[in-house]
Amino acid sequence: MNGLRVAALMAATITTGLMTGAYWAYGTAFMPGLAKVDDKTFVAAFQAADRAIVNPVFLGIGFVGTLLLTGLAGLLSIKEKALPWIAAAFVLYLITMIVTVAVNVPLNDALKAAGDPNTIDVTAARAAFDEARWRTFNNLRTVVALAALTLLTWALYLTGKSAQP
């Protein structure tokens, strides 16, 4: 049971790190890069990236899997010193999911629904997308995911420390 607990906690920490990195990369590279291109390129590139990211690996292992693994790590750590840290990380990561589903995904979906960049008013589509709102909430989920990652890292430390004689 101890091995499974540690493995679940490690997997939760790793996937939280991956998700934090995905949000961070969007905030520090992808969106700043897109901010410098013309409207047609912005719409086309964002639509393509959003279609690509909606896949079983990202959604299953990353987005949803992170929450499930963190929950499993918590359940397997019920009587451990690391439990409060894992539980707090679970809540924080859940907040990133809520922000994503409530803010970022609807903006993404609206931009995809605007249509083919070759046939729509791309300036209007880009303006309706509201890049500033998308970036603000992406920054929020990045910081919250980083906090969850930090807590899970601390939980790993506590778990390792408690295993020492």
Rank of each mutant, 00 (worst) to 15 (best):
N2G: 15
N2Q: 15
N2P: 13
N2I: 13
N2A: 15
G3A: 15
G3L: 15
A7W: 07
L9I: 03
A11G: 00
I14Q: 03
T16V: 08
G17P: 02
G27F: 02
M31E: 04
G33S: 09
G33W: 02
A35Y: 09
K36R: 12
K36C: 14
K36Y: 03
V37G: 02
V37H: 14
V37M: 05
V37E: 13
D38V: 00
D38E: 14
D39F: 07
T41P: 06
A45H: 02
D50W: 01
R51T: 14
A52L: 09
N55I: 11
F58E: 04
L59V: 13
L59W: 08
I61R: 06
V64L: 15
T66Y: 03
L67Y: 03
L68I: 11
T70M: 08
G71M: 05
G71L: 15
L76V: 06
L76M: 07
K79N: 15
E80F: 01
K81N: 14
A82I: 05
W85G: 05
I86K: 03
I86G: 03
A87L: 11
A87I: 08
A89K: 00
L92D: 03
T96R: 04
I98W: 14
A102K: 11
A102W: 11
N108K: 05
A110Q: 10
A113H: 14
N118T: 15
I120D: 01
V122T: 11
A125Y: 07
R126H: 12
A128Y: 08
F129H: 14
A132W: 09
R133C: 08
R133M: 05
R133T: 11
W134Q: 07
W134I: 13
R135H: 05
N139F: 07
L140P: 02
T142S: 12
T142Q: 00
V144A: 04
V144H: 03
A145C: 01
L149W: 06
T153N: 04
T153R: 09
W154K: 01
L156Y: 00
L158A: 04
L158Q: 05
K161D: 01
K161R: 05
